[in-house]
């Protein structure tokens, strides 16, 4: 069990006089739960996701983003009590990933020359290694972690074996790809390069499945998907929760995906704050009545 706790989060665009976008967001996502975060354009949903992951374009001006782990969070290695709560805002994005936070991008980057299989295995091993370092403190400071990856030829895949070897990883990747109904050939393609919008989203869910996060924040994973792809992606998201016990914070504009990924909790953002929370019925109601209704309920004006 892990918990992502967002407390009174304030953030602005990271430049002089940058616009204030988050004005005190409060949210709690436990592993095993599915949360939908809804709201009109510009309400701060995507910014919330990016700030959780540590995007450099935003500056946090107040508040906290905490992850609480339990002692069995990462399997056999027991997490000592004093290392069960982390302030994510003090950490680099890759350290946040190592603690089990995953951000699925609305617009995933296209990386030429780096194959999916190479990138994902590197990421998985880097994550495991980083996690080890975070929990062991300074002892392994001199590790060659800085050199772990560039033995890796982009042409031929990895040369050095990390914790997860090539053969073991390929098996893992194959299974996860089958589950998402993805063609095996994807593994050898360059990361998102030339992928269709739908393929990119599928690939985000695939990466989450491989990296096994405690909490996955999925930013508009449903946009630009046809109905078949939407169902594949929904299957993948449900599997993250049902099979891996991940907590899901799903950011969406539309009710559509929630028909396939039923949320336990629905939150509505307006003007940089979570203004309303409820169960799955709230999203249905929102679909019917629109954001003006929310505004009226919250501010008393239309």
């Amino acid at each position: 069990m892990a918990q992502l706790e967002i407390k009174n989060l304030h953030a602005k665009v990271n430049e002089d006089g940058g616009e204030e976008i988050l004005n005190g967001v409060d949210l709690v996502v436990n592993s095993g739960e599915i949360h939908a975060l809804m709201g009109p354009n510009g309400s701060g949903k995507s910014t919330t996701a990016k700030v959780i992951a540590g995007h450099p374009a935003y500056e946090v001006t107040d508040g906290q983003v905490l992850i609480h782990l339990d002692d069995e969070e990462f399997g056999d290695e027991e997490v000592p009590e004093e290392l069960q709560t982390w302030e994510l805002l003090d950490l680099e994005p890759n350290e946040r990933a190592a603690l089990g936070v995953f951000l699925g991008f609305q617009y995933p980057a296209e990386i030429e020359g780096v194959t999916m299989v190479n990138f994902l295995r590197t990421a998985l091993n880097a994550k495991l290694e980083e996690r080890e370092e975070l929990f062991e403190g300074d002892e392994s400071e001199d590790d060659e972690d800085d050199e772990a990856g560039y033995e890796t030829s982009p042409m031929e895949g990895a040369a050095d074996e990390g914790e997860i070897g090539v053969a073991e990883f390929q098996q893992l990747l194959k299974e996860k790809m089958e589950q998402l109904d993805m063609d095996e050939a994807f593994a050898q393609r360059y990361l998102n390069a030339g992928f269709s919008g739908g393929e990119k989203k599928q690939n985000e869910v695939l990466q989450a499945a491989i990296l096994e996060p405690s909490v996955a924040v999925l930013d508009e994973i449903d946009s630009g998907l046809d109905i078949d792809r939407l169902q594949d992606v929904a299957t993948g998201i449900n599997a993250l929760r049902d099979e891996q016990g991940a907590g899901i914070l799903q950011i969406t504009h539309y009710q559509r995906i929630l028909d396939y990924v039923e949320p336990d909790h629905v939150h509505i953002m307006l003007d940089g704050e979570v203004v309303m929370s409820g169960d799955a019925d709230l999203s249905v109601k929102l679909e019917e009545k629109g954001y003006d209704w929310v505004r009226e309920e919250v501010y008393g004006t239309a």
Partner: peptide, 17 residues
């Protein structure tokens, strides 16, 4: 940022790029 968010540190991410 994309690569870092998946657990790869900046140095390694740049090298891969």
């Amino acid at each position: 940022f994309y690569m870092k968010s998946r657990g790869v540190d900046e140095h390694l991410a740049k090298n891969m790029l």
